[in-house]
């Protein structure tokens, strides 16, 4: 690791000013991606601004849509997750488990316990690893990514491999979305890294909109799959998935699997997602 200067930010505004004062500063959240990259000498930020201790950026609120306020799945509760909330907190949140269990399950399958207790949703989303899990969820749920500057829809946020709509120095503060009426995630972990070799998140909103997002497979990162969306919009079932011809065009090939295999997995994981 190259020499770097560490700062602990007191709040988002402080973090932003620390960043703007640095020559080549970077936000440090859970450090589960950034620190390994620095250890491999592939990143050399002059300054690290740690946001993991900012209370305002942590926590989960779940607001029931119906008047009585009883949290139930399929009821379309509004969910807001602070950017510095860890995967373990998402996996273990009781309100979330009632309102939107699929997101708890997804977070609980990220990495290993050490990764889940440090890694954050904001860090995962900002990093936009093409094999990360959250990007698929956020895209399928039509989530909104809120920063210290603006709100961005998930469709506009994820722009390619490790690329996002974030400006330099822009900090994600929270992620919000409406719990779906139906939703599931099928993940096929890569044997080595256990990131998604293919992950398919399928969601049907309270209004009946179906969105299906695929991670791990796309040559250009997370993407929505129009064929699966159309099939599931008319029939939310594994059978409907079987009728979809998933093309290998635009899919990734690497030492763990070629595009044809990934295309096959998209179908299999989509079935898993809707059967859950």
């Amino acid at each position: 690791m190259y020499t770097t200067k560490y700062h602990k930010a007191s709040d988002a505004a402080n973090a932003a000013s620390l960043l703007s004062g640095a020559q080549d500063g970077k936000i440090l959240a859970g450090g589960q991606t950034l620190v390994p990259t620095m250890k491999q000498r592939l990143a050399a930020p002059s300054d690290l601004v740690d946001i993991s201790g900012i209370d305002a950026l942590r926590g989960i609120t779940v607001t029931a849509r119906k008047k009585l306020g009883v949290l139930k799945a399929k009821d379309g509760a509004t969910i807001t997750i602070g950017a510095a909330t860890t995967h373990a907190e998402v996996a273990g949140n009781a309100d979330l488990a009632k309102a939107c269990p699929v997101i708890c399950g997804l977070a609980g399958e990220i990495g290993d316990p050490a990764v889940r207790h440090r890694g954050t949703i904001g860090g995962s989303v900002a990093n936009n690893d093409p094999a990360a899990d959250y990007p698929a969820a956020l895209m399928a749920l039509g989530a909104t990514i809120t920063t210290n500057q603006r709100s961005i829809s998930a469709d506009d946020f994820f722009t390619g491999l490790f690329a996002t709509a974030l400006n330099d120095g822009e900090i994600i503060t929270e992620i919000s979305f409406q719990a779906p009426a139906e939703g599931g995630y099928g993940k096929f972990p890569s044997p080595a890294s256990r990131y998604a070799m293919v992950g398919v998140f399928a969601a049907k909103s309270i209004d009946g909109d179906v969105r299906v997002a695929v991670t791990g497979a796309g040559d250009d990162g997370v993407f929505r799959h129009a064929g699966l969306e159309a099939a599931l919009a008319s029939n939310w079932s594994a059978d409907a998935v079987s009728g979809v011809d998933v093309s290998a065009d635009g899919l990734m090939s690497d030492i763990h699997g070629n595009a044809a295999y990934r295309a096959n997995l998209i179908g299999v994981m989509a079935k898993k997602a809707v059967s859950a």
């Binding site: 080595a192 890294s193 030492i255 763990h256």
Partner: peptide, 11 residues
């Protein structure tokens, strides 16, 4: 080597 870390070499 395309498999020179535990991200790609499956132990």
């Amino acid at each position: 080597q395309l498999s020179a870390s535990y991200m790609d070499y499956t132990m």
